[in-house]
Every structure is written in C-alpha cells, then in structure tokens.
Amino acid sequence: MPVIEELIRTEQDGTISFGNHKLKTKSKLQDFEHDGDLYKVKTFYEITKLERNGMFVYESVPGTTAMNFTVSDDGVEFSVEGDKDAQLTIQLAEDTEYEVYVDHAAVGGMRTNMSGKLYVSVELNEGTPVAVRIKRR
C-alpha cells in the first residue's frame, strides 16, 4: 500500500485515507473537508494523528498509513500499514463494549474507557496492509 503523499484524501468509495509513515519530519494538513466535516492530520515516522472538527479520532505510535478509514454508528473499519508494530488509539463511544478484528480474526472484546478511547496493538510488516475492524457488541 502506498503512503498518502497528500497526507489525507477522499477515496472513490467515500472513505478517507491518511498518514505517511515514511516522512522524516512532521507534516500536517488542516481544514480538509469530507462529508461536511473538517479534518486535520499530523504525520511522520514517529506518530500519525487524525482529528475531525477539532476532536480526536485516531492516533498511532509509531506513525502509520491508514487506508479506507470509515466510521459508523457501530464502529470503525480501515487497513493500516507501517514499518513496525504499532499501538493504535481510536475514539469511539464511551464505556462501550466492542469486538476487535485484526486481519479478519477476532482478537477479543474490549471496552472503551470513560473518554471513549480504545487501544489496539497491531503487528505490521512493511508493504503488507492489516485490516482492522472494531464493531460494537
């Protein structure tokens, strides 16, 4: 999966893709409009962060490239790529139980904390995207 040279873009299927884990220096793009919302992305090899309308959505340490990112009432779904294993933080509904799937395999139920954050670790190998799906139980 290629990195996102423009830092964030809308895909033909209506999802967004963002992040560039190959950048050596911090880069950001703000006021990217998608479906009536304004997005801001900060990315480079150490961290990738996405905000929507000034609110936290996604963060990875180290930096990643997220493709076909889509959020619904039931959860979130996307593919992620990076140079090494990453810790993902995703904003969801607060104090809610979710089933987490990584590469189409259930890795178990997880509950968001009081601020709605869910933490997922993914094993990444350069050039191989990993599918992540988090669905409300």
Rank of each mutant, 00 (worst) to 15 (best):
T70K: 14
M1R: 03
V122G: 06
M55W: 05
V76L: 03
T89L: 09
E77L: 09
T65N: 04
V76Q: 03
T48F: 12
V3F: 05
D103H: 07
F69G: 00
E33I: 12
E46F: 14
V107Y: 07
D83I: 00
V80T: 03
Y98M: 11
S79N: 08
F78H: 01
E6I: 07
T48Y: 10
G109Y: 11
V3S: 05
D95N: 13
Q30E: 12
V3G: 01
V102N: 08
G82S: 02
V130K: 05
A86S: 11
T96K: 04
M110H: 10
L7C: 01
V76N: 01
K42T: 15
S60Y: 06
D74Q: 09
S17D: 04
V100E: 14
K22I: 07
V132S: 07
K42H: 12
K49D: 00
S17T: 07
V80Y: 01
D95G: 04
L7Y: 07
I4K: 02
N68I: 00
M1G: 05
G108Y: 12
S72L: 07
I47L: 14
K42F: 12
E77G: 04
V71L: 06
G14H: 02
V76W: 05
R137G: 01
R111K: 15
G54L: 08
Y58I: 13
K26G: 10
I4H: 00
M1F: 04
S79Y: 12
A106S: 15
E33F: 11
D103S: 14
T89V: 15
H104R: 11
T112N: 12
E99M: 14
Y98R: 08
E46N: 12
Y58R: 09
V130N: 04
H21R: 04
I90A: 03
L38S: 07
F18T: 01
K84G: 00
G75S: 02
R111I: 09
G82L: 02
M55Q: 15
L29I: 15
M67Y: 15
Y58P: 10
K28P: 00
M114D: 11
T48C: 13
T89A: 09
F56N: 06
E59Y: 11
I16H: 04
